[in-house]
Amino acid sequence: MNLTISGHHLEVTPALREYVLTKLDRVTRHFDQVVDINVLLTVEKQKEKERRQKAEVTVHVKGRDIFVEQANEDLYAAIDQLMDKLDRQVGRYKEKVQDHHHASAKRLDVPAP
């Protein structure tokens, strides 16, 4: 699994990197077929004080890219909300990928009495 954590108008400190890694551990524990993860942390230069800190993540799994973004006035809160959203999306994708089809009774090889 390739992991990229980058910042835009922001220096990614070791504490911030460790926080993102611990949060991503929850997602990768649920679903182990993750190929690539890109995390972008941004401080936007907007006039409105709320929603200036933004976190985005793109998770590349086999057959699909899952993109989630979340903005908040606190970067750590944005990362928390982002990981909650990502966990739900990965869970939905995992359910969709799993084979829920069962062999029909006609196809089973059961000898007739």
Rank of each mutant, 00 (worst) to 15 (best):
P111Q: 11
K62F: 11
E56S: 04
T22R: 14
V34R: 11
R107C: 07
Y76S: 10
H60A: 15
L108E: 14
E95P: 08
R88N: 05
V59I: 13
P14Q: 12
H9R: 09
T13S: 08
K94Q: 10
L16S: 07
V61C: 13
N2A: 10
V57F: 02
E56T: 03
Q89Y: 08
E11D: 14
L75K: 07
Q70G: 02
T58M: 02
V43A: 11
R26I: 09
H101I: 04
A112V: 14
D84L: 00
T13N: 06
E18R: 04
K106L: 09
E69I: 00
Q70K: 12
G91E: 13
V43Q: 10
V90T: 10
R88E: 12
R64H: 15
E73R: 09
Y93I: 09
K45I: 03
N72M: 03
E69S: 06
R92D: 12
R92C: 11
L108D: 10
P14F: 12
K49H: 08
L86R: 03
A77T: 07
V12Y: 08
D80E: 05
V34P: 02
R51V: 00
P113T: 10
N72Y: 01
Y76L: 14
D84A: 05
T13P: 00
K94V: 09
H8R: 08
L24Q: 01
R29N: 11
D65E: 15
T22V: 13
H100K: 13
D25L: 02
T58P: 04
